[in-house]
Design a protein around this nucleic acid. Structure first.
Length: 131
RNA sequence: GAAGGCAAUCGGAUAGCUGCGUCUUGGAAAGGAAAAUCCAAAGAUGAGGAAAGUCCGGGCUUCACGGAAACAAGAUACCGGAUAACGUCCGGCUGGAGUAAUCCACGGGAAAGCGCCGCAGAAAAUUACCGCCGCGUAUAUCGCGGUAAGGUUGAAAAGGCGAGGUAAGAGCUCACCGCGUGUGCAGUAAUGCGCACGGCAAGGCAAGCCCUAUCUGAUGUAAGACCAAAUUAGGAGAGUUUAAUGUCUUCAUUAAACUGCACGAGGUGUUUCCGACUCGCUCCAGAGGUGGGUCGCACCAGCCAAGCGGUAACGUUUGGUGUAGAUGAAUAGCUAUCGCACAAAAUCUUUGCCGUUGGUGGUAAAGCAAAUUGUGUACAGAACUCGGCUUAUAGAUUGCCUUCAAUU
RNA sequence: GCGCUCUUAGCUCAGCAGGAUAGAGCAACAGCCUUCUAAGCUGUGGGUCGGGCGUUCGAAUCGCCCAGAGCGCG
């Protein structure tokens, strides 16, 4: 993935899951600030497809579709110093691509709004997670 | 033409936009712990028949190697062959299903032993309730004895059936069938066919324990090998020789070596024995690290074609060919067109029927050409690797065979 | 990657070296009791024993093949 860095460690996934979460019909988005970042770093993206969705090739396709959308959107909507985790839902595999893209864009907007406008609550949450 | 059986193959195509992994080449920057890295660069290449389940068998890895015996645990089970091996495959036998092609079968042993066989029934394995017959007495709703033909139960009751025989009966005797033993022929064998004898030898269950024969060490590429970084606290026991340093020497520390002898340690299910071997250090404790990189890792019992041998599985010769290698896990996302399958209504053609003087109209059936619309386009994603098995799978194609029908 | 266990009534569990009516508690429904409710008492219904094939006279139980759920090792 040359376009954007990817989250690989379990610790980061858990931290994102504890922070902000937005659910739409086709996708679920979680996000958290990057920890101990001295310099501004590009946003990192993680993809999750649970075993509940189906067998291996369904999970693979789900992740690929999410990745395809993020590739289009990344430069425009992803804020630096933030970890995003996209979780595939049951409809991610089969829903129309336009719907999936619009849902993800809305989810990104909503999350970014939550991060930028009320910073105090976010800080509390992040410190909680760090502990 | 219809129905069925067996075997084999394929399992979407093209174009556009946006992208990914690996390899090669080139460039860029950084440098010196090993590596890595970057590029709107170029080129090549990139999932399956099951990649799945993990049910078997190999390769390879580490555990110090080989052989023998006993025990334990597990697996397999008609016969012969194929194979690296197998619980797989091929051919045959036996039994069963089907008109047939063909298909199905964990298909050894119950006269080695133990165990189980509910209810019913006299009795579920050394049995006798009702019967039948004889004798006794007093003529029986009695006693003693013989018998197992008949009755009752049940999934199953001590060969079947007919005749002779008898007090009544009984393989008691005989024919046929079944069974067992011996034997001849065919066959490598399982087995088949025939002959003779026995006179029925005491039921079933081994996917209950078990017996017999054969086979099997464990461990799974997160195996394992190496490089780098970081960190720590040592202690106990223990040969010989040489060198260096400290020390006046003994001695201590460090490094290197092991010819012979001795000593110690090392065993892969357990124990024992034999041979050969390896190591000279072994044991205990503690600290750090949370997972960096490289190899293993893609050339094989490889794939394709043709010839030869074999009924076949398969073997062999010659020629050609090189074909994924990720690790939060690439091989794609989206769009358009086409293909394939199924369905639909209308149009068209033919035929029949009805109406009309006629043009022609209505209705029903069949047909297939081109176009239209709708739906569907499966199961499913390599993770060290190979040979199988099992399970999932829209649909398409090919070959051979069987039965039935029609035509010639 | 490798291994193990479980699945029985709406829920939680028994029953499994084969023997037929598959039980128990809670829940549900009905009745009694009470002015009414709860508690209590009495009764009733509810099961393809996860699915399929086999062995057997007979399978929830034994064997094989699947499905689902859970656990462990590294």
């Amino acid at each position: 993935m040359s376009n954007f860095p990817i989250i690989k460690k379990r610790k980061d996934f858990l931290r994102a899951a504890k922070a902000e979460t937005v659910i739409f019909h086709n996708v679920l988005l979680q996000a958290a600030h990057t920890l101990f970042a001295t310099e501004p770093q590009p946003a990192r993206i993680g993809f999750t497809a649970t075993k509940r969705l189906g067998k291996a090739h369904i999970r693979n396709r789900t992740k690929r579709r999410l990745r395809a959308v993020v590739r289009e959107i990344y430069k425009k909507y992803a804020l630096p110093d933030t970890d995003y985790v996209l979780v595939g839902r049951y409809d991610t595999y089969c829903c129309p691509f336009e719907n999936l893209r619009s849902d993800i864009i809305r989810a990104f907007k909503k999350i970014n709004k939550a991060f930028t406008e009320p910073p105090e609550t976010n800080d509390e949450k992040i410190t909680d997670c760090a502990d």
